[in-house]
Simulated scan of single mutants.
Amino acid sequence: MDPFENVELGATGVTVTRLGMGLAPIGGLFSPVGDETAVAAVDEAWRLGVRFFDTAPFYGAGLSERRAGRALRRHDRSRYTLGTKVGRLIRDEASEESEVWTEKSGAVFDFSAAGVRASHEESLRRLGLDRVDVLHLHDPDDHFTEAATQALPALAQLRKEGAVRAVSAGMNQSAMLTEFARTGLLDCVLLAGRYSLLDQSGLADLLPECRRRNIAVIVGGVYNSGVLADPFRPATFDYRPAPPEVVARAQAMARLCDRHGVPLRAAALQFPLAHPAVTSVLVGMRSPEEAADAAAMARVRIPGGLWRDLADAWLLDREIPVPLP
């Protein structure tokens, strides 16, 4: 599968590359990132063929959006797809000199219709662009009623007005995303960490529902926030220190991958794309080196024997779709 092939999100006419760039890291997630390095990471991803970029106001208290805009404004706007999110309003933006994600952003949850429009307008200002293509509800876990009755209809209205081209919701759980999918208002969903080599819980409800409704699934968190990138170093799982049993499982997968000459990162990145509901995977990239690594992992040829060995070792269910060699 060509990681830089353009594929349509549902029936929207919006296209994305199979490999997309998640822009949380250039907002300073986990560790500081300088402005030049952040912009260079976007530039390198572009040079390699990535044409799908996804950010959010919350990432670095506006820092990710500002840096993304600085890099992307130099390119033809018709040649890439950009997503951002609504649901948190930033009331204390990071300074231009910031290099690390700040939790002192004064971020407030707001899934009201007015909050959606305010967030969208503020994102355009930070990005310095006239539009975004995909607008996601961002982590409405504790705000389902307001998100369903106010935010989602407001997003649909923005789509009707032509302000955005695709309406989505992004979460770290599949159950509520499935409920949003059943409203009939979504074009796509962003599922983070729930369809990975370590966690396929999205397969029970969300992926089949999206397949039936022609809702495109974008998968984030393919490394489960770090443990599938390198389980032999202190690692995180779901943004917290990885539990010993999770580390052990990831290490067992890594050893089987080594037998086949395949980096675990490559298997983790490519695995979700085998499901017919999945259109694209987002990989966080904080530097040109990480952008180059993601592109290389997306191109690794993975023999069918690896997937069989993972199933034989009870590390992967035999019925789950896996990439063809």
Rank of each mutant, 00 (worst) to 15 (best):
R240V: 14
R240K: 13
A242S: 10
A242Q: 13
E245W: 07
V246P: 06
V247K: 02
A248F: 04
A248I: 05
R249F: 10
R249V: 14
Q251F: 13
Q251A: 13
A252K: 05
M253G: 09
M253S: 09
M253R: 04
A254R: 14
A254G: 12
R255T: 11
L256W: 04
L256H: 11
L256G: 13
C257D: 13
D258K: 08
R259W: 00
H260K: 09
H260S: 10
G261F: 07
G261K: 14
G261V: 11
V262E: 07
V262D: 08
P263C: 06
L264M: 08
L264Q: 08
R265F: 02
A268F: 02
A268H: 05
A268E: 08
L269D: 06
L269W: 03
L269P: 09
Q270K: 00
Q270T: 01
Q270W: 03
F271N: 15
F271T: 12
F271G: 10
P272K: 01
L273M: 01
L273S: 01
L273R: 01
A274E: 04
A274Y: 05
A274H: 05
P276N: 07
A277N: 03
A277S: 14
A277E: 01
A277R: 02
V278T: 02
S280E: 03
S280F: 03
S280L: 04
V281H: 01
V281Q: 00
L282S: 02
L282V: 07
M285W: 01
M285K: 02
M285A: 11
R286C: 01
